[in-house]
Design a protein around this nucleic acid. Structure first.
Lengths: 228, 228
DNA sequence: TGTAAACCGCAAACGCCGTTCGCGATTTGT
DNA sequence: ACAAATCGCGAACGGCGTTTGCGGTTTACA
């Protein structure tokens, strides 16, 4: 009736569970190697391709063997997320004002979502926060130190910034995949009127930055905008 | 070698596929009844409980029978989404200015996400837009008619508003489910410093509305905020 | 040093999933 | 009347995450 470190009734989160015990033979793989294989799979073939069997096959073993290193697929996704967040390092030293630094961090997040689109499907799960994510939070709090407002507001703002960046990232990857196939557009007069309109040039430019700036100032400093 | 209306190589989207042919016996169920059962299941037990077998069982039939009415589970999710979006009706007549009307719509969306939390896991899939969603878009475009800006900007703004509302909805349903279990907080000095701070009162209030207002004006009317 | 406990990789199996298929029965168009 | 189309149904297929039991390997401790 032995209880391996990984299986069993999931007593502790993955972050504090030791990777291996001290008794048995040396493991053929490592937790990080598994995570790297899973991330490569997700990057190239999408998150749906990250099945325990596929990840195990990429490492030349069987699905069941992975459970020597992690206790569930959710654990694997948590580890993938935290490792990807680690790619946001190194964090910029605070030089200018906090707003510019936060916007810079937002653009880094956007790039990260571009490099690992599967993050969009993974970050919204309720799960334990890993050390790299904590380091990122810690860094944001440090940057926001000069801002005079309750801590809760800072946390909410950081989360909201990440969320808004994820929305922009999704828009870029979806790239107008709207499909009006199969519906009779005649029932939506304002839509067809808008579409028949000559549609001026795309207002792109620094839309993300402008949005982030407006969001950060709006959430952290009372209300600087009141266009009524 | 007959080809049923629902099965086969998925020639046309669900919205234009006729619910039944004219030949055979009367169907025991209906597309809408299936969708209602699925929505009830999702509302009470979560989206994961919406399996073809479970939905069929709720209707007193077998999983395979559902494929007489829809061609895939994705179709079912699309139908569920569109039916839920239909609950946003009736749409308010434009009375005041467009900004207030849009903010009102945003609050309605927030309420919808609260009533059907599974929408949060479903709206981000690339899929065909249903008639109710189109009607909602049509209404938004109508409200934004007095705004002088390219159509593309209006569409992006509507999508971004929906996205931001979904972020707030997620925050409300998650309700601070952060779990720092299993990590050594000592490595994150700014975090512990922020937490040890007496943390003023929650700045809640009309955070959603303020954010939406700032977002809408920022995206549609150049840049009214420039807190540099 | 001997031995028992702990750990390894592996393959088979379990229960669930979405989906397909073939069947007999039923209704409709011509 | 008869063929074509559709119905409900149950069995089956392949894939999934996960568990389990096994023989072999390594370590801790008496």
């Amino acid at each position: 009736m032995s209880e391996t470190a990984a299986s069993g009734p999931d007593r502790q989160p993955i972050w504090s569970r030791p990777e291996r015990g001290s008794r048995g033979p040396a493991p053929a793989h490592s937790r990080d190697a598994i995570v790297v294989a899973a991330i490569n799979l997700a990057d190239t073939e999408g998150l749906a391709a990250v099945s325990m069997r596929a990840v195990a096959a990429a490492l030349g073993t069987g699905a069941g063997s992975l459970y020597r290193y992690l206790s569930s697929r959710d654990d694997l996704l948590d580890l993938m997320t935290d490792r990807a967040v680690g790619e946001l390092r190194p964090y910029p030293q605070v030089e200018g004002d906090w707003l510019e630094t936060m916007v810079l961090l937002g653009r880094r997040q956007l790039a990260l979502f571009g490099a690992h689109p599967w993050l969009l499907d993974v970050i919204h799960r309720p799960s334990g926060i890993g050390p790299q994510s904590l380091a990122w939070f810690d860094n944001c709090i440090r940057i926001l130190e000069p801002v005079r407002c309750p801590v809760a507001a800072k946390f909410e703002t950081i989360a909201m910034m990440t969320g808004v960046v994820s929305l922009f990232a999704r828009r870029e990857s979806a790239a107008g995949a709207f499909s009006f196939a199969g519906v009779d557009l005649a029932a939506y007069p304002h839509l067809v009127a808008a579409f028949s309109q000559p549609s001026g040039p795309a207002p792109r430019a620094d839309l993300v930055e402008r949005t982030l700036r407006s969001l950060l100032t709006g959430l952290l400093l009372g209300e600087p905008t009141d266009a009524g």
